[in-house]
Design a binder for these strands. Structure first.
Lengths: 198, 198
DNA sequence: CGGAATCTTGAAAGTGTTCAAATCAAGTGG
DNA sequence: CCACTTGATTTGAACACTTTCAAGATTCCG
């Protein structure tokens, strides 16, 4: 388990890699985020609820997913150290969420409330740039993922996933990775068997 | 063909639906965008070039796509009236683009240069919010599309596309829609035949 | 009109899914 | 510490969907 001060330092680094904050700006920003710990199996957000927070993960593992009419889960994102997670659609539109955010491993996070976030953006406009950059990167990554999904075979996608997110592979169950890649657990199992033979 | 003044009005509306601009702010913003017309078959951006502009489409049709090692094209986006198009990855990182942006039908656009954009964001911070909102919406849409690609059959995806983008269906060749949906042209042709029978 | 691109159609092959069952792993309570 | 329960992974066989390759029909434009 990580201590609070260390997580604040992680956040600070994360922000300052993207925009330059003065000491006093950081002091303001810091005050808006508050520490929260979550236990495995807890839900940070459930379908139907209105998402109110943006989470910055210090330690632990979270994931977001939706559940289709057949009851199949589709993993949207995993979040480990230094990742943000939220339901941006629900957050910006104050609309009922269509997704779940679940804690896979006990986690320590810094979170900020939407209202506080709006307030913070006014006080520290650089944070607007920070969030815009994050959105844009996220967008680029999502497009990349879409492209892989369309272009590559199951095995190629899994290899790409391992290369890109080696830390996540260790920490989450295989069937969730399958659901991230758009495969059935059975298929991923066979793909791995296939790969092991080489 | 649309006249310039009308396109500026479209842009103004597009911005003001998202953030409130005063007259003087709009005057500043307006001055940064300049009108450009493109002919069918022109390339606004080619693979390897560094993307310098953000385009707001007044009329005509554009699309972005990438080309894989087998020479297959994958359509990332279509853009018609009131849409923005650019290569955000290349733009923000000043990196060589991996995509093409092609004009499918003679177009009139308003475009802004990256440097001017940075300048504009400083002068009119509300535009930072505007772009952040656009990024977030775009992200949500891309995630939705990813989800459909993973979850739905070819026919379901095509139906969804028709519902969501009825205007585009009319204006672009079928094989490009196939490449947007991640299908071969043959498959889309068969899907349509199948649907016609009902 | 003629050539090029686009769309359609067919048959065979490939890739991933489904359903069912077996195996394996981890955590719980006695 | 073992037996039991529950969840996760693996395996097999049949099936469904999409692609590939090849060829023919249609449409678009110069």
């Amino acid at each position: 388990m990580m201590n609070e001060a260390t997580i604040y330092e992680l956040l600070r680094t994360h922000i300052c890699e993207r925009v330059q904050l003065t000491e006093s700006e950081w002091a303001i920003v810091k005050a808006y985020y508050h520490f929260q710990s979550y236990k495995k199996h807890q839900f940070v957000l459930q379908e139907g609820q209105i998402c109110k927070h943006i989470l910055f993960v210090g330690n632990g593992v979270l994931r977001s997913y939706n559940s289709d009419e057949k009851g199949h889960e589709h993993t949207l994102q995993f979040a480990i150290r230094n990742w943000l997670i939220t339901d941006i659609q629900s957050l910006v539109n104050s609309a009922p969420s269509k997704i779940f955010i679940e804690v896979l491993q006990d986690a320590g996070v810094l979170q900020i409330d939407v209202k506080h976030n709006d307030q913070m953006l006014k006080e520290v406009p650089k944070m607007e740039t920070y969030f815009r950059l994050l959105s844009q990167n996220n967008m680029a990554a999502t497009q990349q993922r879409l492209n892989s999904t369309i272009t590559l075979t199951a095995e190629e996608r899994y290899r790409e996933f391992i290369l890109r997110y080696p830390d996540i592979v260790q920490q989450v169950p295989q069937h969730m990775i399958a659901s991230y890649l758009g495969l059935t657990p059975e298929t991923l199992s066979r793909v791995r068997k296939q790969m092991a033979k080489k």
